[in-house]
């Protein structure tokens, strides 16, 4: 019997509308710098992409008014934030919380695919390689932001923790609860 999937929080509509006014060029520059920092600390991620390490991926948070085009570029990634559908080898679309949950290993990609919370279009092999590479990298995006923030790291971590608890969105890599 089909079962309901866990509820994926949606980005609130009002702030999403307000984000239409965001200047995209500075956002792209900061996200490129951020991606390059992640690339430096996780070189294995790009090795695992194999022949797809120069593909262009369109990451589409469906509850935000822009898409994120990511080019791994062999380990020197470029990020372009843009309005409209964007063009690339593969498109991975879903609510922002689903995409962040995938990055942090809080959700299983196949389960999100079964429940239709995640849509993949275009080059399926490239999309699969990216998903598997990210899953293996054990990323913690908040940790990376905190590490870039110098003396503000501690308050930023606290702020992110507060936002995570309030929204239910996976903003950090969850602690592995296990047998040991």
């Amino acid at each position: 019997m089909p079962q309901s999937s866990p509820t994926i929080p949606k980005f609130p509509a009002l702030p999403a509308v307000a984000m239409r006014a965001l200047p995209l060029a500075p956002l792209s520059i900061s996200m490129t710098a951020y991606a390059r920092r992640v690339a430096k600390s996780h070189p294995g991620l790009f090795r695992r992409l194999g022949v797809h390490d120069h593909a262009r991926f369109v990451l589409d948070p469906t509850d935000l008014p822009f898409v994120i085009c990511l080019e791994p570029n062999g380990g020197t990634p470029r990020v372009q934030v843009m309005r409209g559908p964007g063009e690339g080898a593969a498109r991975i679309a879903g609510p922002l919380a689903a995409l962040l949950g995938l990055v942090h290993g809080a959700f299983d990609g196949d389960a999100l695919f079964f429940s239709r919370d995640l849509v993949i279009e275009g080059d399926t092999a490239a999309a699969l390689a990216l998903r598997n590479a990210v899953d293996d990298a054990e990323l913690d995006l908040s940790q990376e932001i905190a590490a870039m923030s110098g003396p503000l790291a501690a308050p930023i971590k606290r702020l992110i923790g507060f936002a995570e608890r309030r929204t239910g969105v996976s903003l950090t890599r969850p602690e592995e609860v296990g047998a040991w």
Binding site: L102, G105, F107, D108, A111, G178
Partner: peptide, 16 residues
């Protein structure tokens, strides 16, 4: 083996 570490951890905990 094509599934994520999230799947692996959940299923293993359950079956253990």
């Amino acid at each position: 083996r094509q599934r994520s570490r999230s799947y692996v951890a959940q299923v293993v905990r359950n079956f253990r």
